[in-house]
Nucleic acid binder design. Structure first.
Lengths: 192, 192
DNA sequence: TCTCCTTTACTACGAATGTAGTGAATATTA
DNA sequence: TAATATTCACTACATTCGTAGTAAAGGAGA
């Protein structure tokens, strides 16, 4: 981020987005929630579009570091390891990163109507998707591109369901079971 | 719906929600988009909360009819039939029902902050989930409740991915393939 | 036909919003 | 230190928002 202040503003915007939604995110609301003198946010991000861009940029920055350390251990049962890794990642996003995930979803919707956001969102999504393709390819997928995409979609669906849908508590064990079944379905019963 | 006018207002609100998001849905915007004299929506749904409730109620009404005719054909390969059925349903939601789906997502988020919406949303979701559990149970699932839930989550994820995420065109063939693999993963390779 | 009740049209108002201008304060560089 | 560029705090304004009041229109039932 360009400055400490920009970080503070963006982080506050993320929380507001998660807690109060798109309508709750305003320049003034950020000032107030961050304890900044009124006008500060308006000054840093002149337009609403600029504020959204700043927030999304910060969000992708935060999430990219969260998924950085994840080298696939090429052990005996790769599916098992991959399932464990994925379940843990989902778990993290659902608990510690709950608000970040919700804020990201809010911005994803907004990106459908704002090209400047779409650009940022897609660039981050692409990197993530490519990673999934590479991993599934290494795991012996017969159609890595489609599978990679489906893998990401499955993850988003699980998170969406927990955070927005039924609202039930996420259970790590269930996540593990689910991901394992999902992977076996794609890679075949006895996949390496 | 209570009146033709209420239907018109709700349908217009759905479109606005899909096209302009939560911030684009206002009493005045509905009047204008529906071609009603200013104040009409405000009069029909006195508060913003009432407007959102009306819209969500209409939405669940519309979607319940869309999924009504779907008796599982107990043929030889049940997984195959179920996959075909699901793929078609997803396809419909992604094309003809695109805006309805997006509007539903918007309201789902809002329901996290508005208990009165949460009630409506959950009641509809429960019926849907129960249906999934029953179908998977009939298909021989070893854990119908968890699988039913995961099945719904998978569907939401696929839709979310297409509508909000990568934004690529949905391909019916890919949907069919994906659902089939997903089901085989849950039900076992040679599931009936 | 007359009466009662619901729906509709229109208007008003306080509060909140996005945006932008300006001068002071602070940091950076020469 | 002096000059310059950047960041900051504060203010102002037109617009839009949610909400509500009220009077006219319309329809149902006696």
């Amino acid at each position: 981020m360009k400055s400490q202040r920009a970080e503070l503003v963006a982080d506050t915007a993320i929380d507001l987005l998660a807690d109060r939604g798109m309508r709750g995110l305003t320049h003034r609301a950020v000032d107030e929630a961050a304890g900044l003198p009124p006008g500060s946010t308006s000054n840093l991000a002149r337009t609403r579009s600029a504020l959204l861009e700043l927030t999304l940029a910060r969000l992708t920055q935060l999430e990219s570091t969260a998924f950085a350390a994840a080298p696939a251990p090429p052990g005996a049962d790769m599916v098992e390891a991959l399932a464990e890794m994925t379940a843990q990642a989902l778990w993290t996003q659902l608990t510690v990163g709950r608000r970040q995930t919700i804020a990201r979803y809010e911005l994803a919707f907004e990106a459908n109507r704002r090209p400047e956001l779409r650009t940022i969102y897609d660039r981050a999504g692409e990197r993530f998707r490519d990673l999934a393709v590479a991993i599934l390819s290494a795991a012996g997928s017969s159609d890595p591109v489609r599978h990679g995409r489906q893998f990401v979609a499955f993850g988003e669906g699980v998170m969406f369901d927990v955070l927005i849908g039924a609202g039930a508590e996420p259970a790590l064990d269930d996540l593990r079971l689910g991901v394992r079944e999902f992977l076996r379905g794609m890679l075949g019963e006895g996949a390496a």
